[in-house]
Write a protein that binds this DNA or RNA. Structure first.
Length: 514
RNA sequence: GCGGAAGUAGCUCAAUUGGUAGAGCUCCAGCCUUCCAAGCUGGAGGUUGCGGGUUCGAGACCCGUCUUCCGCUCCA
């Protein structure tokens, strides 16, 4: 480990990503876009390799999982059914003194809860005072309780009307009228209520009068749910089975930061596993384990991963956990495993009017399947790999090197091929080796500068092997192959290079450990 | 969104109280021929994030704006 401070460590990783063609700020010549990044020549390769590792581990390695590629545009009703139109619309309000931001609806709900507490206290007090206490009678007759109850109903009705009418000024007025104070500053110095719609919307249709509002999908999962029956029927899928998908999703985050950790445009890799109701917890446990193992096989360090079980569950889930990874800025969510019950399919049944059931021949009955979801952010995964792989080493003799210890199967280039010197026919032989290997492997060629410099350049982009052609190569058709991590060399026959690279750098080397 | 810090070459950073924008590394073309970044010669690369203002003169001072980092907040 280096002695670099954590915040510098993260900065260095970001700089390294830019300097070596992994990640650039988007539209940088126009000053960039907040929280939008572009993948460069090496980043695109690494990202593609991670995606492929995921896809093959899901689709190719499981006979009962198939992949789809749904459109980003979906029928607007999809998002009503999924709950995103409502749940993704948060009215927010700031307190000008404490500078804290709150969800306006939460403030009002908490205020209502406080009044309910008061009712309960009245009931408790009365219960102590009277024998043969009739709670229901007390609640329906006590003047003070009735007054509280009336207040609650008034507030709830006002709030409901305000939200339905999208009247944000009225929402603020409710907060003012209820004399709600900021718990921190204790003041009522509120800003206006503002609506943050976390879904991006756009217009479909070229003529504005005929155009309708569509959303850029905030998750890929719904593309799977709306196609669940198509895939089940045409693929003759038998429960339990899964549908996998990778693709872009979009969220208009209020605050999007920490490099590519939270972006407004990002790529998800999701798999929805359809199971018989009642068996979902077994499958939830199965995928929880399987997914952690998938991460561990990357070899970036077992201590960098941990589970985080959700206590507060989303509206659709009956169990949920995250796999967290230790990023330079702490343990953060990398992947989510959720038992989503039959919520989504039931919702789509209701909104579409189509039956989304499965006939189970073993049970001889039809049902809406339960769903266990695994959902991982590809960009986060990229950052987890990059930040774990980045090392600043101090070598014997005091000089330093920056090396990306990428898993060889994920590295953009599997090998670099060098002539030791740029004459005596060495470049010609090196280029011939290159030409032979490139049908099967991503390889690169370099003849500039001393060979030591070239090794370091490859270390910096994470190339696991460097193949050097020297004078001996011309005589006995052997070359040296130099290992990135140990910097050790061995001499091998040119004819063996292809199979060596296949054995060490193909995805099979990872998939076979699952 | 609020508070703090910052923005000068591809990267890391200089530039005295306001007085001609520089260095190292990288990169490119050669020379040299050596298995772990360090030899030699030459070269490219900047309206100092952007826009105003003060001044004889602004990289520096003032205002606005954009972007990034840290903290708060948010994350179905």
């Amino acid at each position: 480990m280096s002695s670099v401070k954590p915040e510098d460590h993260f900065k260095n990783i970001i700089s390294h990503c830019k300097e070596y063609g992994y990640i650039f700020p988007s539209s940088e010549i126009y000053d960039g876009m907040s929280a939008v990044y572009d993948y460069g020549q090496n980043g695109a390769e690494l990202k593609k390799n991670i995606r492929e590792y995921w896809w093959k581990s899901m689709v190719q390695m499981h006979e009962n999982i198939v992949g789809i590629d749904a459109a980003i545009f979906m029928h607007p009703t999809t998002w009503k059914a999924s709950g995103h139109v409502d749940a993704f619309n948060d009215p927010l309000i700031d307190n000008k003194d404490s500078k804290k931001r709150y969800r306006a609806d939460v403030l009002i709900e908490e205020h209502v809860a406080k009044i309910e507490d008061k009712i309960n206290k009245e009931v408790e007090k009365a219960a102590k005072r009277f024998e043969n206490f009739d709670v229901a009678m007390f609640r329906s007759t006590n003047a003070r309780v009735l007054e509280y109850q009336k207040k609650i109903e008034e507030i709830n009705a006002r709030f409901k009307n305000a939200m339905e009418a999208n009247d944000l000024a009225e929402v603020r007025q409710i907060i003012v009228d209820c004399e709600i104070v900021d718990p921190i500053s204790g003041t009522r110095n509120w800003t206006d209520v503002r609506q943050f719609n976390l879904m991006f919307s756009t217009q479909l249709g070229s003529v504005s009068e005929e155009a309708s509002t569509v959303y850029l999908r905030p998750e890929t999962a719904q593309g799977i749910f709306v196609n669940y029956l198509n895939v089940q029927k045409t693929g003759r899928m038998k429960i339990p089975f899964g549908i996998a998908q990778t693709g872009k999703a979009f969220r208009n985050e209020i605050v999007a930061r920490q490099f590519i950790f939270r972006m407004r445009e990002f790529e998800q890799m999701e798999m929805q596993f359809f199971v018989r109701p009642g068996t979902e917890m077994e499958w939830y446990e199965y995928w929880k384990k399987a997914r952690l193992n998938w991460h561990l096989v990357l070899g970036l360090g077992a201590d960098k991963y941990r589970y985080h079980d959700h206590i507060k569950l989303a509206h659709y889930a009956n169990a949920a956990c995250d796999i967290e990874h230790q990023f330079p800025f702490g343990f953060k969510e990398l992947e989510g495993i959720h038992s989503r019950t039959d919520f989504d399919l039931k919702q789509h049944e209701q909104y579409s009017g189509k039956k989304l059931q499965y006939f189970d021949p073993e049970l001889n009955q039809s049902y809406v399947p339960y769903v266990v979801e695994t959902s991982v952010g590809l960009d986060r995964l990229f950052l987890s790999v990059m930040s774990s792989a980045y090392k600043e080493e101090v070598l014997e003799g005091g000089d330093t090197r920056v090396v990306l210890g990428l898993p060889p199967a994920l590295a953009p280039f599997k090998a670099a091929i060098f002539p030791l010197i740029k004459k005596d026919g060495l470049p010609e032989l090196a280029e011939k080796i290159m030409t032979d290997l490139k049908f099967d492997h991503m390889v690169t060629y370099d003849e500039k500068d001393t060979v030591g410099k070239r090794y370091r350049r490859q270390d910096a982009i994470g190339t696991p092997y460097c193949i050097t052609v020297d004078h001996q190569s011309l005589e006995d058709q052997t070359v040296t192959i130099r290992h990135r991590d140990s910097m050790e060399q061995e001499r091998v026959a040119i004819s063996q290079l292809n199979s060596i690279l296949t054995a060490k750098t193909s995805l099979k080397s990872l998939l076979s450990q699952l």
